[in-house]
Design a protein around this nucleic acid. Structure first.
Lengths: 231, 231
DNA sequence: CTGATGACCAATCTAGCACTCTGGTCACGA
DNA sequence: TCGTGACCAGAGTGCTAGATTGGTCATCAG
C-alpha cells in the first residue's frame, strides 16, 4: 500500500476514533467520519469493506501502539518479558488508551452493539492477552513454576487478568487506588501464582519474546490497514 | 413471624424461584407467582413491599442455604476456614445454585433489569464475598501472609474471585474443565497470593469464623423474610 | 486510465400513538 | 384480623409512517 494511502487511512481512523470516544459506536455514521476526515464516503470503502471492520481497525491500530510500547519496554529492560511484568504493563498501557480501555472493560455506553460483534473478538482474545508461543518461551527459560506447562495457564491466566479489567466499571467510588497500584496487585498475583520464587536471567527469553510480540503487532497492523476481516 | 407464615413465604419464594429460572425476571408477573403459590396477589404484598424485594428475597434465601453449607463444612473440617478453602467452597456452592449462579455470572437473560437494580447489590457485594471481620480473624490467626492486613485484600481479593465468576459465560465451548477443576484453580491462586507457605492450625480461627458466617446467614435470612430493604 | 466522489437505494431505525399489561392499593368479605 | 382480587395509574408493547444510514456505482477530475 502506498505511503500516502496509509496517511489517508490514519486520518480516517483518527476521525473514527475521536467520534467513537465522544459519541459512542451507535451514534457515529460513516458520513460523520468522512466529513471529519475530509474525504468522500466512498473513499472509506476503498480501505475497509464494512463499518464494523473500520471500527475493528480503530482498535487494531491502538493494539499495535500498545504492543510497540510493550516491545520498547522489553528492549530497555529484558526483565519486562516475565509474565507478571508483561501483564502489569499490558494492563497499564491498555487502560491508558481510551479505546482499548473501552474494549477490555466492555464499556457498553461507548461500544454498544460493537460489543456483541464478532469483529471485536480478536481484540480481546486470549491470543492478544498471552499467546501460546509466548508462554512456551517462558516455560523453556524457567520463567514459569516448575511443572507448569503453558496449557496449564489457558484457563486461570485469562481469568485472573479479565477480573482486573472487568471489575473496573463496578468499583465503588471509595476505592481510590491509582492505576499503578492496581497493576501492582495484578503483577503480585501473577508473580506468586505462576512464577518460580527466584527468576532466572531474562535476557535470552526476552530475545525470543520480542520477536513474538513484534509478529503479533505486525498481524494487527495488517488487519488494521489491509481491510482485513479480523480473523 | 409465625411459623405458618414462614411456610407461606417459602411457598411464594419457591414459586418465584421456579418461574424466574424458567422464564427470566422480566416475564414473571406477581400474578403468576400468586397463582402458582396458591395465594392472592395482595398476600404477597403482606410479605414484601415491592416486586424487586421479593426477588431479592429469592436470592437471599439461596445465600442462606449456601452459607449454611459453608458453615456445615467448616464444622466438619476447620481447615475450611482458610481463605482458599472458603472461596473454593463458595465458588462451588454458588455455581451449583442456579439463582446464585445467575447473579454472580451476571446472567442478563435470566436477570434482565434486576441486574441494574440496587436490590441486587447486597447479594454480590464484598460483604458476602468476604467480610472485613472474617479477614480480621484470618489475620489474627496467622492465616494471611505476614504483613498482609485485611484491608490490603479489599481490592485484589474480590477482583480475582469476580474474574472466575464473570468469565464463566464467556468461556469458549472447548474449555472442558469441571466446576471442581475451576474451583481448584481459584483456590490455588488465593493460596499462593494471600496465604503463608505453611498454614497454622485452623481450629481456633474456625471457631470465630463460624460465628461470623452464622451471623451473616441470619442477616440474609432476616432480609429475606422480614420484607427487608436489603440494606 | 486511475482513483475519488457523493447521489442514490434498500434496509434498518426512530418517533409517536393507541392500546395492553402489570405492579401496587385498598375496600370488602370471610 | 387477615386475606383477597377488582381496580387504577403508569409503564410497556406493537404498529406504522417517515427519517436515517450503510453500502454501491455511475460519473467525473486529474
Amino acid at each position: 500500500m502506498p505511503t500516502e494511502q496509509i496517511g489517508r487511512a490514519d486520518r480516517i481512523l483518527d476521525a473514527a476514533k475521536d467520534l467513537l470516544l465522544r459519541w459512542g459506536y451507535r451514534r457515529v455514521t460513516i458520513d460523520d467520519i468522512a466529513k471529519r476526515a475530509g474525504v468522500g464516503k466512498g473513499t472509506i470503502y476503498l480501505h475497509w469493506r464494512t463499518r464494523e471492520q473500520l471500527f475493528f481497525a480503530v482498535g487494531a491500530r491502538e493494539a499495535v501502539a500498545m504492543l510497540e510500547a510493550v516491545v520498547t519496554a522489553m528492549r530497555a529492560d529484558p526483565g519486562e518479558i516475565a509474565l507478571h511484568r508483561y501483564m502489569r504493563r499490558f494492563f497499564l498501557e491498555a487502560m491508558r488508551r481510551p479505546v482499548l480501555r473501552a474494549i477490555f472493560t466492555r464499556d457498553a455506553e461507548t461500544l454498544d452493539k460493537f460489543l456483541s460483534s464478532p469483529a471485536r473478538k480478536p481484540l480481546e482474545g486470549a491470543k492478544l492477552l498471552a499467546s501460546r508461543e509466548y508462554l512456551g518461551v517462558l516455560a523453556r527459560h524457567g520463567l514459569l513454576r516448575a511443572g507448569l506447562r503453558p496449557e496449564d495457564l489457558d484457563y486461570p491466566l485469562p481469568t485472573i487478568v479479565f477480573g482486573f479489567f472487568a471489575i473496573e466499571p463496578m468499583l465503588p467510588a471509595e476505592v481510590s487506588l491509582s492505576l499503578e497500584e492496581k497493576a501492582d496487585h495484578l503483577a503480585d498475583t501473577l508473580r506468586r501464582t505462576f512464577e518460580p520464587e527466584r527468576l532466572p536471567d531474562c535476557e535470552p527469553a526476552a530475545e525470543r519474546g520480542i520477536e513474538i510480540f513484534e509478529g503479533l503487532s505486525r498481524d494487527f497492523s495488517n488487519a488494521a490497514y489491509g481491510g482485513g476481516d479480523g480473523s
